[in-house]
């Protein structure tokens, strides 16, 4: 790839590669997309994707860029409709690579029921980027009256997750660091909007949703506990972690509860909605389960999340700073 900043080549790239791929080709305008939305309650989000490796078992940067933004919309209970895509390409990125990523994005968008309706591409000099950076922004509509946010969380709420934990983080690390485990661990990257919409349509009174991305389940629960001013207790014994992921974590010295996921979320729902919610989550993934509950209110700023360990006493599931340096001696 050697397309300079903008101009004619960029135009070609757009027309030859992106327009035919991203379905709504005919209507993609060069300046801005004009949308008409069926409601006045709109969810809007953006995220940028920088990842090494670009391809990994279970996904690639393209599908990730779609899932990530779709899931952010889904976590407010919105129905994702439209995405924008911005590429920053490093000079020298093989056309073939770009093509694969673009194809994957289109596939992911189709699966997630969203349309890519506007975009932009810039090429930077060799060495000024890391192959490819992608930004996506998404618009969704909110069709319910729930306040899906930490402030709705209440003592007694039950916490569910929609599947096993830790695969994405380990899959990425395995490829990036050249680690070979007994089996190939695939990322769990997936769009979550349809499950969430199904929950809402079934009348599940969702209090809060959060995807378990960076920092994993542990960081998510700590953040929610802190902003909702509640205490949370979960049971490690019931949290599904695949054996190969568990094994990899042991070798690497990671706790699966802190490892990133891309297709997993935690749902806080009131007692009355638990059965319905679990049934729906289970219909998508048998490993979906109840992991714990909100145990009370708290004014403290820390020590809010506890976990019943595999053996013996419960422990504090703390918020760890970036690098996990040993504390024990």
């Amino acid at each position: 790839l050697a397309h300079g900043g903008g101009g004619k080549l960029m135009q070609q790239l757009l027309e030859r590669m992106f327009l035919p791929t991203f379905g709504a080709a005919k209507s993609i305008p060069h300046d801005s997309a004009v949308l008409s939305l069926p409601t006045d309650k709109i969810a809007f989000t953006t995220d940028s994707y920088v990842i090494n490796p670009l391809f990994f078992p279970g996904g690639d940067i393209g599908s990730l860029a779609i899932h990530g933004t779709v899931n952010d919309l889904a976590m407010s209970g919105a129905r994702p409709l439209y995405l924008s895509v911005g590429f920053i390409l490093e000079e020298g990125l093989p056309m073939e690579t770009l093509w694969r990523i673009v194809q994957s994005m289109q596939q992911a968008a189709e699966n997630a029921n969203v349309q890519i309706i506007t975009g932009d591409t810039k090429v930077v000099d060799r060495g000024k980027g890391d192959g490819i950076f992608i930004n996506t922004a998404g618009v969704g509509i909110v069709e319910h009256d729930l306040l899906i946010a930490p402030q709705s969380v209440e003592p007694g709420d039950v916490i569910l997750i929609n599947g096993d934990l830790g695969r994405h983080g380990i899959a990425i690390m395995a490829v990036r660091e050249g680690l070979e485990f007994e089996t190939t661990i695939e990322s769990d990257s997936a769009p979550l909007a349809s499950i969430v919409l199904e929950l809402i349509e079934a009348g599940v009174k969702i209090h809060c949703l959060r995807d378990l991305t960076r920092g994993g389940l542990s960081s998510t629960l700590n953040e929610i506990a802190a902003s909702a001013k509640v205490t949370i207790n979960i049971d490690e014994n019931v949290i599904p972690v695949r054996e190969d992921v568990q094994g990899a974590c042991e070798i690497l010295g990671f706790d699966p509860l802190y490892v990133a996921n891309e297709g997993r979320f935690a749902a806080f729902v009131p007692q009355e909605s638990v059965d319905k919610a679990l049934e729906i989550l289970r219909s998508h993934n048998e490993q979906a389960c109840i992991i714990g509950q909100v145990t009370g209110r708290s004014d403290a700023k820390m020590g809010l999340v506890t976990v019943q360990s595999l053996i013996g006493a419960s422990r504090i599931l703390d918020m760890l700073s970036g690098e996990q340096l040993p504390r024990i001696c």
Binding site: L252, G253, Q324, P326, R327
Partner: peptide, 8 residues
Amino acid sequence: LPGGEQAV
């Protein structure tokens, strides 16, 4: 220390 706390 490979594995951080695990190494301990």
